[in-house]
Computed example of a mutant assay.
Amino acid sequence: MNLSSNRGAPCSPFRLVWFSEIQWDFLSTRKQRLLCRFPESWSILFIEPFALRRRHHWIPVKRGRVWVVTVPFLKSVPFRIGRLLDLPLLRWLLSLPGILLMLFWVTILGFGSSNRIIGLSNIYWGRVAALLPCRLRFYDANDDHLAFPDNPHWLKGSLDHYLSKVDLLFSVSRELTSRLRVPPGVRLVDLGNGVEFSHFAISRPRKPAALSRLKGPILGYAGAMDWLDSSLIAATARAWPEYSIVLLGPAYEREWWQKQAAINELPNVHYFGKIEYSELPAWVQHFDLALMPLLSSDLKRVSHPNKLYEYAAAGVPVLSMNYCSAVERAREVLHVAVSQEEFVRMVPEALADRRVEARQAFARQHSWDTLAAVMVQELEKASRERSL
C-alpha cells in the first residue's frame, strides 16, 4: 500500500472527505453505493467510526478508488459515565485524540488542502467538520439521527452548527428535510434512495443451501434487524406455521437474536445474520415473498428504504407495513398494510402476486447510477459557483 500515491499524481479537480456514521464494510448503504459511482476525477476519503466487535481499518485501505480509515470519536464514548460530557471543554479534550488522528490521515493521504469538499452524515463530527477549511460543505441527511435513542442533549447543537455552515443538503425524503434547521439560501436536493439494479435483477438460479433445507414458502426480510417489529414477525409465524420466515442482516445491538424471546424459539423463524452484499441477490430472489415488517416510529416515518427497490429489482412480491411515504407511493407494485392484523391477513394475497416486470420497471427508475450522477452534478455545480 502506497499511502502517498495521491501526492505524486496530478491534482484532481475534486477531493472529498466524507465523515460517515457507519463503517464501510459493516453494511452496504447509500454512501457506498453513491461514492463507488463518482467519476475518476474525484479522490475520496471515507472516515468511518469505531465500533466494538467489528472490523476496523486503523491503517487506510482502498475500496475501489475510495480510501477508508477508522477514526474513533465521541460516539464511541459510553454516555453512562455520567453528565461529565455535558461540559464542552471536557468533550473537546476527549475528542482531541480522534481529531488529531483524523488530521494526520487527511494530511498523509493528500486531502489536507482547503480546496477540498467536506461531506457529513455522522453528526457527532458536526462541530469539527464545520471548522475544517474547504471549498464546499454539504450534509447528507439519510436518517433523522436526532431521533435515535439515548442521544446526548448536545448532539442537536452539533448538527445545527454544521448545518449553519453548509452550502448544499441532500436528503432521502422531504419529511426529513422539514425537520432540519437549514439556513435560507442552502440548496436542498431530495435525492431519495436507490438500488444497484443489475446486481439484484440478474437471475441467480442456484438457491442457497440454507434456504433449500426449509419447508414451505419462504417469507424473507433482508436488512438491519434493529428496526424490525419482532411482535409482527411472531404473529405472522404463528398464523402461517407451514411457511418459513427468514431474517437476513446485521444488528447494531449486541446479542440481538438472543434477546428476541418472541421469535427465536419459534420453529419456523430462522435468523442467518449478515449476508455479504455480493451474495444477497441469490437469497432475495429465492424469497417467495419479501417482507418489510418495520416498526412505525418518528425515525422510520422520514426514511426512504432502499430495500424496497432491491426487492422490486429481484422481481419478488413485497408486503410492507405503511411506515413511510416511499412505501405509500409504491402501492402500485407492492402490498401495503396499515395494521399488524392486516399484514398477517394479506400474506396469501401478496404471495400470489406475479407482476415481476412491473416491479422491475419500478426499481429501474431508482438506480444508483442515476442518483450518483445527480449528486455529482450538484456538487460540481455548487463547487464551481463557490470558486467564482
Score class of each variant (00 low, 15 high):
residue 71 V to S: 02
residue 82 G to K: 13
residue 77 V to S: 03
residue 75 K to W: 07
residue 102 M to D: 02
residue 79 F to C: 06
residue 81 I to F: 14
residue 77 V to H: 03
residue 79 F to N: 04
residue 78 P to G: 06
residue 65 R to C: 00
residue 106 V to I: 15
residue 114 S to V: 05
residue 79 F to H: 14
residue 106 V to C: 14
residue 106 V to F: 09
residue 108 I to N: 00
residue 105 W to S: 11
residue 97 P to K: 13
residue 105 W to D: 06
residue 112 G to D: 08
residue 91 R to D: 05
residue 103 L to M: 06
residue 107 T to I: 00
residue 104 F to R: 12
residue 105 W to I: 13
residue 107 T to L: 12
residue 119 G to E: 08
residue 121 S to M: 10
residue 93 L to A: 14
residue 77 V to A: 02
residue 74 L to A: 04
residue 81 I to R: 04
residue 86 D to Q: 15
residue 92 W to P: 02
residue 69 V to S: 10
residue 100 L to P: 07
residue 78 P to Q: 07
residue 114 S to I: 01
residue 111 F to Q: 10
residue 108 I to F: 04
residue 95 S to Q: 15
residue 69 V to W: 08
residue 76 S to D: 13
residue 102 M to T: 05
residue 103 L to Y: 04
residue 81 I to C: 09
residue 111 F to A: 09
residue 114 S to Y: 04
residue 77 V to C: 02
residue 101 L to I: 12
residue 89 L to W: 15
residue 116 R to Q: 05
residue 86 D to G: 11
residue 102 M to S: 04
residue 81 I to T: 10
residue 71 V to K: 08
residue 105 W to M: 12
residue 67 W to N: 11
residue 72 P to V: 02
residue 77 V to F: 08
residue 79 F to G: 11
residue 121 S to T: 15
residue 110 G to S: 05
residue 97 P to T: 13
residue 113 S to T: 15
residue 106 V to G: 05
residue 84 L to H: 00
residue 87 L to V: 15
residue 73 F to I: 13
residue 113 S to C: 11
residue 111 F to D: 06
residue 112 G to W: 05
residue 120 L to Q: 05
residue 67 W to A: 08
residue 95 S to W: 15
